[in-house]
Design a binder for these strands. Structure first.
Lengths: 154, 154
DNA sequence: GGTCAGGTACTCGGATACGGGTTGTCCGAGTTCCCAGGG
DNA sequence: CCCTGGGAACTCGGACAACCCGTATCCGAGTACCTGACC
C-alpha cells in the first residue's frame, strides 16, 4: 500500500487539531514531519478530489477539512489515495486456455473467497471514523493537540 | 497485490483435482490457463519454500500438494507469494521532524486502527481453507474436476 | 479620506523525470530413465 | 537372461533483464493582498 495513506491520515488529524479557522499550506504540513513538500501536496490534491479537504490558492491559502472528523472514515482516505479498485483483481484466468470455463456461469469461487476477505477489510475501515482515532490518540498523548496548535501557530 | 496469488490458488486446486499420484510440471499447469511457464515456475518455487507443495526434478518430475486442501488456508498461499510483511507499513513519521512524539510511548493510533483492519482481512483469509473453496467450485461446476483430470491425463 | 486599478507575491494544480519492484526470461544443477555391454 | 555402468534427456532452481507503477520534482494557473494614484 502506498505510504501516502499514512501521510494523509496524519495530515487530517493535524488539520483537525489546528482548527478550521485558517487554512494550512502543504509545505507547512510537510515540514512538521519532514516529508517532501511537493509530494505531500500531490496527495492532498487527491483528498481534495475526494471531497475530504478543501483547498484555497494564493496568500493565506492552503488546506482545511471539508467536514468534521466524525464524518470521515478510514475507508474514505484509503479510497481517495489508493483508488477505488480492489487489491485482489481477478484476471479470470480460468476463462483462458484449454481449461476455459463456460462463460456466463457464476463467479469464480477463488475470486469470491478473496473478495469476502477484502470486504471484511473494507468494512473494518469504514466502521472507524477519524474521530475515534483522534480520541484514542488524545488518550495516549493528552498534550498532542496543544503541541500541534502551538507549532503551527508559531 | 501480485497476480501470482491468483495463479497459485488455481494451480493448487488443479493439483488437488489431478490427484497426488503423479507430479505435474510447471509448463503443463501454465498451459492450462495460457500463462507464462517460466514465471509460474517461479511462483511455484515460493509455494515449495512455504511447504505448501513439494517438487521433484528430472523426468516424471513436477509439483504435487504437500498436504490435503483442508490444511491449506488462503492466508498460507497469500503469505507464501506476497511475503509476511503487512500491507500497511507504518513508517512512524510522527517521530520525525518538529512534531516528533516522545519515543517509548504507546503505538501510533493510526497504525493501530489500520492494523486492526488488516488483521480482520488476515483472519478472514486464515478462516477459509482451500477445501471450502474447492467444495464451492464443485457446487458451481460439478464437471470441473473430471474436465481437469481428463485434460492433464491426455 | 475613501475608492479603485494595477502589480506583485504566494499557493495550489497538473505536467514532467527518476527509481524500485513486480513481471518475464534464461541457463545451470540435479535427477531419472534408457540402453548397451558384460557376466 | 540378469545386472551394472554410462550417457542423455528432462525438470526444477536460482541468476539475469524489461517494463510499469509509485516516488519525487518542477513550473504554470489562479487568487488574495498590497501599493499607489485618482476622485
Amino acid at each position: 500500500m502506498s505510504e501516502g495513506v499514512e501521510w494523509a491520515l496524519h495530515s487530517c488529524l493535524n488539520l483537525a487539531w489546528i482548527g478550521p479557522e485558517r487554512a494550512v499550506k502543504a509545505a507547512r504540513l510537510a515540514a512538521y514531519h519532514e516529508l517532501p513538500a511537493a509530494y505531500l501536496n500531490k496527495q492532498l490534491q487527491a483528498l481534495v478530489r475526494a471531497g475530504i479537504v478543501t483547498s484555497v490558492s494564493g496568500p493565506r491559502g492552503g488546506f482545511r477539512l471539508a467536514r468534521p472528523l466524525a464524518r470521515i472514515t478510514l475507508m474514505d482516505v484509503v479510497a481517495a489515495i489508493e483508488g477505488p479498485e480492489e487489491a485482489f483483481r481477478c484476471a479470470e484466468i480460468r476463462q483462458q486456455g484449454p481449461g476455459a470455463a463456460p462463460p456466463g456461469g457464476p463467479r469464480c469461487a477463488i475470486a469470491g473467497a478473496m473478495g469476502r476477505a477484502e470486504l471484511a477489510w473494507r468494512r473494518e475501515l469504514a466502521a472507524h471514523t477519524l474521530e475515534s482515532v483522534r480520541q484514542r490518540a488524545e488518550e495516549q498523548a493528552p498534550d498532542a493537540p496543544e503541541r500541534v496548535r502551538r507549532w503551527f501557530a508559531g
